[in-house]
């Protein structure tokens, strides 16, 4: 076992355990903090796969921006203590069984699928910013610009929705 294998398993266990904590903890703030841990573990996976740019962007966008937004909303709505209605355990068990069946189905489908193990060319350069930038600004220039329009539209929409006068 090489060191990177140990790192892979460590990051995987951290990601899965904190993801379970997101679902099963009662306090919404703890859920957000667990999700941040999950995102850092996934960013570690990106670094492990030599995709440094995506790893850094992942930390900045998810841990830095999105989760802070979630924490902000939870703070403003004052959801520290649990607000959820009590449900019967039957509902919980049904949800767990359904998710377990989903997992079994996906794993079975992956096991049946013959993923072609093509011989890789040298891919150590794949995740580097230079390679990514070349592809992004040559092949994917139009989608890149459209993404900026999408972000602008989302910003306008969020500001409009947050205005006080709107009544449902």
């Amino acid at each position: 076992m090489s060191p990177s294998t140990y790192v892979f398993w460590f990051l995987t266990f951290v990601a899965v355990l904190s993801a379970l904590n997101v679902v099963f903890t009662k306090n919404a703030v703890y859920s957000v903090l667990s999700l941040i841990v999950t995102f850092f573990a996934i960013a570690g996976h990106y670094f492990l796969m030599n995709a440094q740019f995506l790893g850094i962007v992942h930390i900045m966008v998810y841990a830095g921006a999105i989760m802070v937004l979630f924490l902000y909303v939870i703070m403003m709505l004052n959801l520290n203590e649990t607000f959820e209605t009590n449900k019967d355990t039957f509902f919980h068990i049904a949800a767990v069984i359904a998710a377990g069946l989903l997992l079994v189905t996906m794993v079975a489908a992956f096991a049946k699928t013959d993923i072609q193990m093509q011989s890789m060319v040298d891919n150590s350069e794949i995740g580097y910013l230079e390679e990514l930038g070349k592809v992004l600004f040559n092949e994917y220039l139009l989608p890149f610009e459209i993404a900026s329009v999408l972000l602008l539209a989302a910003m306008v929409g969020a500001v409009y929705l947050s205005k006080k006068e709107i009544q449902v």
Binding site: V22, V23, A28, S31, F70, V73, I74, L77, L79, T82, F83, E84, T85, K87, F91, H92, A95, V96, A98, A99
Partner: peptide, 8 residues
């Protein structure tokens, strides 16, 4: 499926 809090 399990949680009922929309934020979660």
């Amino acid at each position: 499926m399990m949680r009922r809090n929309a934020i979660i």
